[in-house]
């Protein structure tokens, strides 16, 4: 019994311990890491991956995967830029873009739930389709020339009470999604589908509907991340968001969520996002080459999953 509780504590806090350890190591090697300016910088850097990873957590909890998030980000970014160039109000544009993200996600969800297709295959296909549509729409060139709206600039570059607005967005979204996952019946259904889809269905849970909603959330998060990126760059890039799905999946996995579904927590994903962010930020501070950074990130993923195997 005692060993049982110990393992459960270990499994809950393993990623948190890793995070603290990482912060310690980076700080010792370069104390500049803990300076407020750098921490704010860090928060802004992780907000895009954070948003996508939070949405991805729901998807992975059901035992699914969403590879299309990077392309969804690019397509919504391009459409939003196009709308603003055409004179649509920037705030309205953000709402429309997020709605489009929801629809793109719902398309994934419909194929997966109603078409009974594997999430990997469906989102692999839509990843290509959405990217292709982005390239068609932008004709392969960046869209610029919408940069004079103060409100839109604020969304990616501004500060609120000294905290970068993207970070504020990320934290608000985290709280909302955390509440949905742990306090609302929607969250219970999400876990139930991942735990045993057949039992969930037979218990009267509308599995198809929940899945469509979950992929919609993932699409919305990608679109929201896309708006932050568009605002920060002041342009929509047709190649934006490539391989973002990998960073998001990595964060979810490092955070202890099982790719088989049914087990995991969104708070763990937050820690995973922080770990990946600090690795990037810290290695930049230490002047480690970007090539090494890739190797290190990969190694961290392997270790995280290996520890996960060991404890289960």
């Amino acid at each position: 019994m005692k060993t049982n509780t110990l393992t459960s504590i270990w499994s809950k806090f393993a990623s948190l311990l890793a995070l603290i350890l990482l912060v310690g190591v980076v700080t010792v090697l370069n104390p500049a890491f803990l300076e407020p300016a750098n921490l704010m910088n860090l928060l802004r850097q992780i907000s895009i991956n954070g948003l996508i990873a939070f949405g991805m957590t729901f998807v992975i909890l059901t035992g699914g995967i969403d590879l299309s998030v990077g392309s969804t980000l690019a397509l919504t970014s391009a459409l939003a830029a196009g709308m603003m160039v055409a004179g649509v109000d920037p705030i309205l544009t953000i709402f429309i873009a997020v709605l489009i993200g929801a629809i793109l996600g719902a398309v994934n969800g419909l194929f997966i739930a109603k078409g009974k297709m594997a999430p990997f295959i469906v989102t692999l296909a839509t990843m290509t389709i959405y990217r292709g549509l982005t390239l068609l729409y932008t004709e392969g060139k960046p869209i610029t020339g919408f940069g004079d709206s103060y409100a839109f600039q604020l969304f990616g570059k501004g500060y609120f009470l000294g905290i970068p607005v993207p970070a504020v967005t990320m934290i608000i979204v985290f709280v909302v999604l955390w509440f949905m996952l742990h306090k609302m019946s929607f969250g219970r259904k999400t876990y139930a589908i991942g735990g045993n889809e057949k039992a969930a269905l037979i218990s009267g849970i509308r599995v198809d509907r929940v899945k469509v909603m979950i992929y919609s959330i993932s699409g919305m998060m990608a679109a929201l991340a896309g708006m932050i990126l568009t605002s920060r760059l002041g342009s929509a890039q047709p190649t934006a968001g490539q391989t973002y799905e990998m960073d998001a999946i990595a964060a979810v996995v490092i955070g202890g969520t099982s790719l088989a579904g049914g087990k995991g927590r969104i708070a763990g994903t937050f820690i995973g996002v922080l770990i990946i962010g600090i690795l990037n930020n810290g290695m930049n501070l230490l002047g480690i080459s970007a090539f090494y950074q890739q190797v290190v990130k990969g190694v961290v993923i392997l270790i995280a999953v290996l520890l996960d195997r060991k404890r289960s």
């Binding site: 219970r188 876990y191 735990g195 045993n196 057949k198 039992a199 849970i205 049914g262 087990k263």
Partner: peptide, 21 residues
Amino acid sequence: KDEGLILDYSIRDNIMLPNLK
């Protein structure tokens, strides 16, 4: 085991499945 229960989940979670609403 396959259709009635989520074996990894608690008694509470299982009993609640059809009663969430």
